[in-house]
Design a protein around this nucleic acid. Sequence first.
DNA 1: ATCGATCATCGTTCATCGACGATAAACGAT
DNA 2: ATCGTTTATCGTCGATGAACGATGATCGAT
Lengths: 121, 121
Amino acid sequence: MIDPPFLPAGDDAAPDPAAFTALADRLRALGHPARLAVLHTLARENRCVCGEIVRELPLAQSTVSQHLKVLGEAGLIRSRAEGARTAYCLDHAALAALRAEIHAVFDLLLRQGANEPAAES
Amino acid sequence: MIDPPFLPAGDDAAPDPAAFTALADRLRALGHPARLAVLHTLARENRCVCGEIVRELPLAQSTVSQHLKVLGEAGLIRSRAEGARTAYCLDHAALAALRAEIHAVFDLLLRQGANEPAAES
DNA sequence: ATCGATCATCGTTCATCGACGATAAACGAT
DNA sequence: ATCGTTTATCGTCGATGAACGATGATCGAT
């Protein structure tokens, strides 16, 4: 169902640098507490108008709108104009795909059990 | 085994903003292609000296050292001075913990199956 | 037709990031 | 003791990020 574009070939195939870039872009979109809070709100409310999110965060409307734009450009949320308002909702498919990619990366990083070459710091 | 500090209480408990910040910090550390490449190299080689990583990336030594510092401050890798060199390796425990936190977040975001309130964009 | 509400965008400001070269410190070997 | 190697740090530069207020466009209702 989900198509994992990360490392489609063998395990240790040299990962396409573009794949790293595409994944990093979305991880960076997640890498801000306000955006995590926005996603959490959208998950709880299922569908939010911008003003509702503004009311939940200690940020100006323009700042929230900017964060929504970042999340939209990362493809993690979708928007729909409804009269004077704009409704936002999670893009479940995109989030599921991202989860799969992240899962694959962590599998790659943690594959062979904990080797501990006596690291100190 | 792994302690997931994310949302220890009920599902819809208001998430501690500090939890968002802590998670966002590590996600941001992952949100750069060079750092993903570094992690991938460390996973493959299990233990790398800085120069080896420099040889794999089209970046100056000082830049790579900076990325290693970011990853270290995020707690994702560990370092050990060995003579004139410094060996780096993944912090498997920290990565496993992060994976668990990310997993919890995505579970939260994707919990109730795909609701599609007719989003257009 | 006007008004209030809603939201995206613009312009600005300050801080942080990402990259580099240069430098200095630490070490092993000569 | 000196030299070459390795790496962390410093200073710099340009670009990007994050935040805000102000503005303007769009819409519903009056």
